[in-house]
């Protein structure tokens, strides 16, 4: 029964990683860049929800919508101001810019919200679920996190596979030049991708802070890196890959903490990543494109 409870916490943590990883993987797939500021957008999402509930007295649900709105705008702004001017620059320049944006967001948060941790109260109003005569207790936050992740995956899959903008995103991801020859605006498509990724980051931020209720300017950094690992683990650029990578990473982390060592859990996570990449360099679901002549 303890194993089951660890497994459920793992899936829940993994769901948060998966939601963040989706943002990384979509931006990578379409703009071919690693947006290292993505983790810090999570933090901004957390603060927005915190401010909405504690300062404005809004309901938890509207605080999530508020956080999503602000992060969407923030994501688009970051893309327009920092990345768009570098569209044809070498990828190293873009990478360094992304790290710069990450530091900028963290330090701006330090200025605005001070380094003192805020204690975040969960946005989830439900009670814990008690199963098997109280032997298995699943918190409301855990359930909401897993359900939210499932809904996001299904929605995103529908968007990407069924809608016109989703198909345009896949086309840009595969061949930017030819996508333009079809009449697709690459800039618009990249903006939409950043908007979606940042809105998801806000959701992840709120869920993360609901589960681990300490909010600081560096709150997003570590989960951001873990989620990036998850995206690479699953095959960067692949949406199902980000989902699978996120969930697996969460499970490995929690089981590692529970059965091996709390201190070593991060090392175990990254060791698994290294092994997977040695065996399958494209990640679990990464694609190898065959070109016919």
């Amino acid at each position: 029964m303890t194993f089951l409870s660890y497994l459920i916490s793992g899936i829940s943590l993994g769901s948060i990683y998966a939601i963040i990883a989706l943002g990384y993987t979509m931006v990578y797939g379409i703009a071919k860049m690693l947006n290292f500021a993505h983790g810090d957008v999570i933090m901004v999402g957390g603060y927005m929800s915190f401010m909405a509930t504690t300062h404005f007295g809004w309901s938890p649900f509207s605080s999530v919508l508020f956080a999503m709105g602000v992060c969407t705008v923030l994501g688009i702004l970051i893309e327009q101001l920092a990345y768009k001017p570098l569209r044809s620059a070498p990828s190293l320049a873009v990478l360094i810019t992304a790290i710069g944006v990450s530091y900028f967001l963290q330090n701006a948060a330090l200025l605005i919200w001070t380094p003192n941790p805020k204690s975040f109260s969960s946005v989830v109003p439900f009670d814990s679920l008690r199963l098997f005569d109280g032997q298995l207790i699943i918190s409301g936050t855990t359930i909401v996190t897993i359900v939210a992740c499932a809904i996001i995956i299904v929605t995103l899959n529908t968007i990407v596979n069924k809608t016109k903008i989703g198909k345009a995103m896949r086309a840009v991801s595969e061949d930017k030049d030819v996508a333009q020859l079809m009449g697709i605006s690459v800039n618009k498509t990249i903006s939409v991708t950043f908007a979606i990724g940042s809105a998801l980051a806000a959701v992840a931020g709120v869920l993360l802070c609901s589960a681990y209720p300490i909010l600081m300017p560096t709150t997003g950094a570590m989960p951001g890196i873990k989620a990036f690992t998850a995206a690479v683990f699953g095959g960067i650029g692949s949406i199902p890959g980000a989902f699978l990578g996120g969930i697996l990473l969460g499970i490995i982390e929690i089981l590692g903490k529970a059965y091996i060592s709390t201190q070593l859990s991060d090392a175990i996570v990254f060791a698994v990543l290294i092994i997977i990449l040695l065996v399958k360099p494209t990640g679990l679901l990464g694609k190898k494109v065959l070109v016919k002549v």
Binding site: K167, A168, R170, E174, D175, D177, K287, V289, L290, V291
Partner: peptide, 14 residues
């Protein structure tokens, strides 16, 4: 220069 990871129909739609 087709979109190889998209279906035939989706290529036509593009």
């Amino acid at each position: 220069r087709l979109f190889l990871q998209m279906s035939v129909k989706e290529n036509l739609e593009m």
